[in-house]
Amino acid sequence: MSQRFEGRTALVTGAASGIGRASARRFHAEGASVVIADVQEDAGAAVVDELGDRAVFVRTDVSDESSVAAAVDAAVATFGRLDVLYANAGVMGALGPISKLRAEDIESTIAINLRGAIYSMKHAVRVMQPRGSGVILATASPAGLVGGVGPHVYSATKAGIIGLCQSVAAEIRPYGLRANAIVPGSILSQMTADISTGQVKDLDAASVALKDSDLLDRNGLPEDIAAAAAFLASDDAQFVTGSTFNVDAGYTHAPGDSPFARGEWAEPMGMYEGGRHS
């Protein structure tokens, strides 16, 4: 594998599992030192044990600004720099009808999904801007772009992530920094296993459950998002900022099955006024 990140440091929040773990693995495989930032201590330590050298775990609660600041400071203290911040930590959070949502669930969902991303960007920019280089990424969702496909508060926070990345990208561009949002489609992970089967660790059952909604010939995988993150964080994407990068098999912008190109429409024809065909 190429070593696009040799000598660089990446901090990934929510890196103990799913998309975050796959992204940390990908950055590390391409030469980066990585900070595994998560509240899941055992799972985070396991990722570090797997990766070995150039990896550390820092227990990080993204809803707590001091915890986020400490993770960024740990990255710099341990590896001397921070080049990539991937604000990936997130939860489904508050579920239910809008008329019945509980205040505590609303607050915690916003705190983790949106406020956590704001804190992460704030402290990453704090150490990146003086160096004049750095990349910020954040995980959004199709639910931030399309109504009716996610819980209400989750959808609001993911729409907020997109707006946040665009706004921050405009501010930091003059300083040599970039920011982009990643929109994963239906990805086989513990979160989607919990949603689809009620069993957070039953990925096999989740894979079967997700097949009905797959737009391509396989499930989306955390590694698909990791590949996009690695591209956006690399010098190959140095002209890409303020973007919303969809990695969703076309779910957001090409969800249909093109019915007018198959079946009775498999051969070309024209349909015009008054039932005239040609």
Rank of each mutant, 00 (worst) to 15 (best):
G263Q: 03
A261S: 15
S63W: 05
M191I: 15
W265Q: 06
S23V: 11
M269T: 14
R4F: 08
D224S: 01
F245Y: 09
A77I: 03
R26K: 11
Q40V: 02
A74D: 10
S141W: 03
L164H: 03
I187F: 00
I161R: 01
S2V: 11
T241F: 08
M271K: 15
P222C: 10
P151R: 02
D202Q: 04
V12L: 12
L210T: 03
G93K: 10
V58K: 06
D73L: 04
T9S: 05
L95Q: 14
Q129T: 02
T139H: 00
S243H: 08
H253Q: 03
G116H: 10
A237R: 13
A32G: 08
G93Q: 05
T244Y: 02
R21N: 06
A261K: 07
P174I: 13
V72T: 04
G274F: 08
A227R: 05
R21E: 15
S243V: 11
A181S: 15
P268L: 05
D194C: 08
P174W: 05
L177K: 05
A159F: 03
D42M: 13
L85K: 07
M92Q: 09
D214W: 09
G220Y: 10
V208D: 13
I172E: 00
A103T: 13
G134F: 09
A181H: 07
K122E: 07
G144L: 02
V240I: 12
I98L: 15
R8L: 13
T60Q: 07
V39W: 02
R178H: 08
P255N: 11
L216Q: 06
P142L: 07
Q3V: 11
R81S: 15
L221N: 01
V153G: 00
Q166T: 05
S155G: 11
D105H: 10
S67W: 04
H28T: 13
T9M: 04
S141T: 10
P184K: 01
T9W: 00
G263Y: 02
I112M: 07
H123K: 01
A237V: 13
N219A: 02
A237S: 12
A233P: 02
A229I: 08
S2K: 12
G20P: 04
Q129N: 03
S120A: 12
R102N: 07
H277R: 15
T197F: 01
A206G: 03
H152C: 14
D224M: 09
S99C: 04
A249N: 05
